[in-house]
C-alpha cells in the first residue's frame, strides 16, 4: 500500500513531529547507554587492568595541561582580584577570594574542560576508530560486552581522575595566586594563607568535589557514546570527536549552573 502524500499545510507539522521523535529516540539511546554502562560497573567481572589503563589515559596524560592551566588561572585570578580588592582596601582577602573561586567554581569547570579537550576527544576518536574497523563487532561476536571492556572502565576512571585533577588544579592555582599576590605584589604570606583558612570550609571543598565527580561521568559518558555511535569513515570519526567535545563542554557549563543552584 502506498502512502498518500500529506497536504501542503500539514507538512511543517509532519517535519516537526519527525524531528521531535528523532530527538526523543536519540535521548533514549543516550540514557540507555549510560544505564547499561552503570549496570555493567556494578556487575562482575570487573576489568581491573582496563580501569588502570583508563586512569593512565584520562588522568596521567592530562597532568601537564592541568598543571599549566591551573597555575596560570591562579596567577590571572591573583592579579585581577588583587587590583579589584585594593580599590576597597580589602586586599587581605585575596587568599580566600582566589581559593573560593578555584575550589567552588573554576577548578572543577576548567579542569573538566581541559580533560575533555585532551582525553575526551582522544577517547571518542579511539572508540570511533574501533567501531569503523569492526573491532567493537569483533568483541561482540566473541560474546564479550564492548561496554564492559571500553565504556565501564572509562566512566569509572572518570569518577576517580576528575576529582584528583580538580584537586591538583586548585592546589596549583592557589599557588599561582600566591606567586602573584605575595611574591609579586607584596601581600604577606600569613595574610594570604591565614585568611584562606578562616573563609574556606568543608562545604566549599565538597561542592567542588561533587561537581568534579559529576563532570567525570558526563565527559566519559558523552565521549564514549559519541565514539560508539560514530558515522562512517574518517569524516565520521572527526565529526564524532568534535560533537563529543562541544556537547561535553556545553553540558559541563549547564550542569555547573544546576549544581551551583542546588549545592550549598
Amino acid at each position: 500500500m502506498t502512502e498518500r502524500p500529506l497536504p501542503l499545510t500539514l507538512r511543517p507539522l509532519d517535519a516537526i513531529g519527525r524531528w521531535a521523535i528523532a530527538v526523543v529516540e536519540a535521548l533514549g539511546r543516550f540514557g540507555t547507554f549510560l544505564g547499561q554502562a552503570l549496570g555493567t560497573i556494578l556487575t562482575p567481572p570487573f576489568k581491573f587492568w582496563a580501569f588502570v589503563d583508563r586512569i593512565h589515559y584520562i588522568g596521567y596524560r592530562s597532568l601537564l595541561i592541568i598543571l599549566l592551566t591551573g597555575g596560570f588561572t591562579g596567577m590571572v585570578l591573583g592579579l585581577q582580584v588583587y587590583f579589584t580588592l585594593v580599590r576597597f582596601g580589602s586586599e587581605a582577602y585575596l587568599g580566600p577570594a582566589v581559593a573560593l573561586s578555584l575550589i567552588r567554581e573554576l577548578g572543577p569547570v576548567l579542569a573538566a574542560l581541559m580533560v575533555t579537550g585532551r582525553a575526551g576527544s582522544a577517547l571518542t576518536a579511539e572508540i570511533g576508530i574501533m567501531r569503523i574497523t569492526e573491532q567493537i563487532d569483533a568483541l561482540t561476536v566473541m560474546a564479550l560486552s564492548p561496554i564492559r571492556y571500553l565504556v565501564a572502565p572509562s566512566i569509572l576512571a572518570g569518577l576517580v581522575t576528575f576529582p584528583l585533577m580538580t584537586a591538583l588544579f586548585d592546589a596549583v592555582g592557589i599557588f599561582g595566586g600566591y606567586l602573584v599576590g605575595v611574591e609579586l605584589l607584596g601581600l604577606s604570606q600569613g595574610t594570604y594563607f591565614g585568611e584562606m583558612q578562616s573563609f574556606v570550609d568543608l562545604s566549599d571543598i565538597m561542592t567542588g568535589f561533587w561537581k568534579s565527580l559529576s563532570f567525570g561521568v558526563i565527559v566519559t559518558w558523552v565521549c564514549t557514546y559519541k565514539g560508539f555511535t560514530v558515522g562512517h569513515g574518517a569524516e565520521g570519526v572527526a565529526k564524532a570527536t568534535t560533537d563529543a567535545v562541544v556537547l561535553s563542554s556545553v553540558l559541563i557549563l549547564v550542569w555547573d549552573y544546576f549544581m551551583g543552584t542546588v549545592l550549598p
Partner: peptide, 19 residues
C-alpha cells in the same frame, strides 16, 4: 544470543584486530 555466539569464530573483512 551470547550462548550461540560462543560457538562462533568470525574473520572480518579487514581483520578487525585490536590495534
Amino acid at each position: 544470543l551470547d550462548e550461540v555466539r560462543r560457538r562462533y569464530g568470525v574473520v572480518f573483512q579487514g581483520g578487525a584486530l585490536f590495534d
